[in-house]
Amino acid sequence: MELDPRGQRVAAALTSAVIILVLATGSGWLALAQAVVFAITALDPRKGPYAYLYRLLILPRLGPPVEREPAAPVRFAQSVGFTFLAVSAAGYLTGLTTLGVVAAAFGLLAAFLNAAFGLCLGCEAYLALRRLTTARSA
């Protein structure tokens, strides 16, 4: 499965905007909605709500993509995003506002870096995590 990288940037920009709204309003339900969007996109990046918006509104104006990128990194990043926003939603909705704010802040950091610089934070950290979480005897 290959994806249009521009679509991912647009999705990341939309995600950043939504998380900014989450932080500004402190709405746990909005965080939950974004978590659901992440979950759907992680399962199939082409069926993600933001991907639909991209194909409907932006792709017709841009023309077909010059190159495509593999889906695995995108799906991984989306599941990282899901984790953060799920924790954030849980925090806001159970009254642990600090937890909600911190988790949403990390989600915003990752989404904004992806949108503005095309840098996938989860992908960068992936190997480091694998190194730290697996036994040294490997």
């Binding site: 932080l23 500004a24 704010v101 802040a105 915003l108 950091l109 870096l113």
Partner: peptide, 24 residues
Amino acid sequence: MDALGIAVIVAVLVVATTIGLWHR
């Protein structure tokens, strides 16, 4: 509107931009 939330947004955007520029 949540003052703490706004502060966090600004802080995160500044940090992210720094990381992004450094990375680039």
